[in-house]
């Protein structure tokens, strides 16, 4: 049917950039964080990542074969989804968790809604939210002590901040990643290295992560300390939990973030506000997952209201009328 006449809408000029190229860049940018997780938490981290990625790719291939769609494994988006999901999980998690999670991400969150480009939420985060509801104990307690490679049941820095019990690590520990946490969220330096690469390659827009991280920083500074405003520790708030991982690698997903620069800034700020609300007034210690998922849902609305000014047009109806009347 497609061979008869090919009618496509604009754009007709195509750049050299491909989905595969962009996904490859994202994978490259996640390599430092992945290596850091293996160094910090041992081979176990590598096993979790491998299980997650293999399950994601296999689910994509099997589902697309089953419904007789073109198999799009080679665009690497499934690899990115699997890798991102693995990086949000605790290192000591049982292996069925990343396997089921990746399958959920690909089949339920992505393929059922039409595949890459038509999923309405970030598949990796949808899967993480599902896993948090399905096996809460696995996703929130299977920590491994960094460099000691031993499973522990202590509170993560965020849980310690929230409950007031346990030790909150210093800034240096947070930057290097020697603290309890999910695979890919602990080593901030490695994450920032990858993020810098993505921004330099113009794969992601700096506005969204800037709005996200900035809002979390400000929010924590204002509300972070109970009983007193403007006394909180903004830096620790940004470096703990999944803020950096979420802001640079997950919220910036093309499919589920606004298309305009201004809209992206709004989405970042929205993510930051929801993260702060969940952290300080919600029951969970961390809110990045739900913040991004919620803003994913609002993305079409942002795109509808944040419309770029057309070149050569007056920017609102009143001004346009004035202009026409003036002639």
């Amino acid at each position: 049917m497609g061979e008869k006449l090919l009618v496509t809408s604009s754009p007709h000029l195509k750049g050299p950039r491909t989905v595969r190229g962009i996904m490859l860049d994202v994978i490259l940018a996640l390599v430092p964080a992945s290596i850091a997780s293996v160094v910090l938490f041992g081979v176990r981290a590598l096993v979790v990542i491998a299980a997650s990625v293999i399950s994601a790719v296999a689910s994509e291939a099997i589902y697309e074969k089953a419904v007789k769609r073109e198999v799009t494994v080679s665009d690497l988006s499934a690899v990115v989804t699997g890798l991102l999901l693995a990086l949000t999980l605790p290192p000591g998690v049982r292996l069925y968790v990343p396997i089921v999670g990746s399958a959920f991400a690909i089949v339920i969150a992505k393929q059922i809604f039409g595949g890459l480009g038509t999923n309405f939420v970030n598949p990796a985060l949808a899967a993480r939210a599902f896993l948090m509801a399905a096996w809460p104990l696995q996703v929130s307690s299977k920590w491994i002590a960094p460099l000691a490679y031993d499973s522990v049941s202590g509170p993560t820095p965020l849980a310690a901040l929230k409950s007031g019990r346990g030790v909150v690590p210093g800034i240096w520990d947070l930057l290097v990643g020697t603290r309890l946490g999910s695979l890919g969220e602990t080593c901030i330096i490695a994450l920032l290295l990858g993020a810098a690469y993505l921004i330099a390659r113009d794969v992601i827009d700096w506005r969204l992560p800037a709005g996200f991280v900035g809002t979390v920083f400000l929010g924590a500074w204002i509300f972070g300390k109970s009983g007193a405003y403007f006394k909180g520790d903004g830096l620790t708030a940004v470096l703990t939990g999944g803020v950096i991982l979420g802001a640079f690698f997950m919220a910036t997903d093309y499919v589920t973030s606004p298309v305009t620069p201004k809209g992206r800034l709004y989405m970042g700020i929205g993510c930051g506000i929801i993260t702060i609300i969940i952290r300080y007034w919600g029951i969970y210690p961390e809110g990045v997952t739900y913040a991004i998922l919620f803003m994913n849902l609002v993305t079409p609305l942002i795109d509808r209201f944040v419309v770029p000014k057309y070149y050569g047009y007056a920017h609102d109806a009143a001004a346009r009328r004035a202009k026409i009347g003036g002639r």
């Binding site: 049982r94 069925y96 339920i108 599902f130 509801a133 399905a134 096996w135 809460p136 696995q138």
Partner: peptide
Amino acid sequence: LFDPMAVMLSSPGGFITLGL
């Protein structure tokens, strides 16, 4: 047979099952 998924007994599990 396996580690049960708590989510299936709560309302999200109901919606997912119904939709599928």
